[in-house]
Amino acid sequence: MVLIPRAQYEAIIAHARREAPREACGLVAGHGERIERVYPVANRAELAVEFFAERGLIPPGRDYRPEAPGSIAVERFFMDPEEQFRVLREIEASGLEHLGSYHSHPATEAYPSRTDVELAAFWPGMLLMICSLADPARPVLRAFRVVDGQVQEEPVVVED
């Protein structure tokens, strides 16, 4: 189970909407199963072409340049490393635990893609929160953990 205050829940959805059609991404921190803060982090997918290519995560024939029509940059996220590092330090300094990350799926369901599962291996067991805007009127936020390639869902409880 994941507990998240209404304001943080709304912050993730608002960030996802701001970035759409690109993916939004960020980090979440708190204590135990309770998220207390969310931290938007810049998405630098367009700078990570080789990173995705060497894992076979760019479909053949797709353009990666962010301005190109049909660019796959809108379908990937790669957190800005310096900002990610800075936020992790800030989380530590504030006495919170780094619980995991969030990102948006502007056009698909709130479930980890093959790419998500593969790349979650760098942060095993961490919370992976996904916000779907597939139905723009009804955003969906779900939480998962990927352990040894297996996806486990954690029910999200929004606290008012």
Binding site: E23, C25, F52, L57, I72, E75, M79, S113, T115, A120
Partner: peptide, 13 residues
């Protein structure tokens, strides 16, 4: 000296 693995993913496949 800081070290972090990437955090990345994407909505399709």
């Amino acid at each position: 000296v800081g070290i972090i693995p990437a955090m990345a993913g994407g909505q399709w496949s």
